[in-house]
Design a protein around this nucleic acid. Sequence first.
RNA 1: CGGGGUGUAGCUCAGUAUGGUUAGAGUACCUGGUUUGGGACCAGGGGGCCGAAGGUUCGAGUCCUUUCACCCCGACCA
Length: 435
Amino acid sequence: MRRSRAFIPTIKEAPSDATLASHKFLVRGGFINTQGAGLYNFLPLGKIVLEKIRAIVKEELDQAGCLEVQLSFVTPIGLWERSGRSNSMGKEMLRIKDRHDNEFVLSPTNEEAMVELVKNRVTSYKDLPLNLYQINTKFRDEARPRYGLLRGREFLMKDGYSFHSSQEDMIREFELMEATYKKIFTRLGLDFRVVQADSGAIGGEGSKEFHVLANSGEDTLVICEACDYGANIETIFDEEEVQALNENSYEELQLKKLDKRCSCGGNLSFKKGIEVGHIFQLGTKYSQALEAYFNDENGRAKPFEMATFGIGVSRLIAAVIEQNHDENGCKWTKETAPFAVNILLSNVKDKAQVALGEELYEKLKALRVEVMLDDTKERFGFKMKDAELIGFTYTVIIGKELENGLVQIYDRKTTQNSSVRVDEIYAKLVELLKS
RNA sequence: CGGGGUGUAGCUCAGUAUGGUUAGAGUACCUGGUUUGGGACCAGGGGGCCGAAGGUUCGAGUCCUUUCACCCCGACCA
């Protein structure tokens, strides 16, 4: 893509309400813009990143045998009345009426719809297990949306639901999904932890959350420094203690912390996390409530054993930035960067610079490398600041050193410049992109 | 949902206390020129129903009423 033809409205000043790095840089970098409270538009750059994350999620789930579907976003109120959630979810569900005065809900989640879909279509144990998922818009009318993409009202979420003939098989799938989620977050380049979460009536290890470790996270976790044990503090401490921890007044809880040394003997410590995934053993809660049965080997009707799996796709965009940025802007991870290479022409009036830039641009495009050619008339400093803000993995600087047969590669992660001879730049880039 | 606050140019904000020429600055944008390795400089220019509706007044960005939107703290958040 040529920068001169792109729609990337970067701005120097952050919106006044943005407190988090991800919110500031995503708006300043022209990835998203605010449409209303908790509502965001995705501009070309934001859309590219969103689709990259979506693709990775889909690829890994499909590898694990999950099947993608897409349920309607607008759902009749009756669906929610049958499960009782029309009342229990209250104002979080946005209700609308059509021209006939019939009431509808913008889906905040899809357990009911998914059970209805499977009910009476899957009727035999022979057709189980089944794991269906979708990556679709959700709407939750939060009392107080904030933190940019981290807590919006409309957001993109992957929600999956599995159906089984036995609890053992459901637990097998649950473990498979835990492993799959780890693959997904690892591919995205995130530093994350799997922690035990509050599992309510189900008990045991029926609920696990995936948290990206970042100081701006809304949840507090206890994690072991030696093994991979971790838990949301909601599962360990009572309400008052959770409150104290969330207010960062850790001191008086240090004693308790020592008492609760990890079973492996390692030290436990507190960390902040952003919840980006949640897997949950549902059992027969929804299948029973919605009378969704299958016939077992003996021809007896039994409710499906179910589990549910969620990933906050649009929230992940913000999580990547919360964990990977500096004072100048975004540092996308390898798999999330909207463009791998940015070719910066220091002075577009210099014909030699333009010629080399164009040549390199065409060669990289031929290799299907995601490459941006900054062919705008701006000055060097302006273009560098823009490149850092947007967060291209590598920026090739074609400038005054060209006279000496040199160009520079700026590595966004390390912020280091290194000189490369012009006749070696292409090979060098190919090598960098491979690793 | 409780408490507090803000709506004026694309963005960040003055101006409102005490009503009074043609509503301002910075930045962004357009034109011309200079400049070209870290968000340049000079000159000129376009852009506002001062959130909306009603009211008081000779006169309202400023006062009154209503309303909408947005933000902050808290509660809530499978």
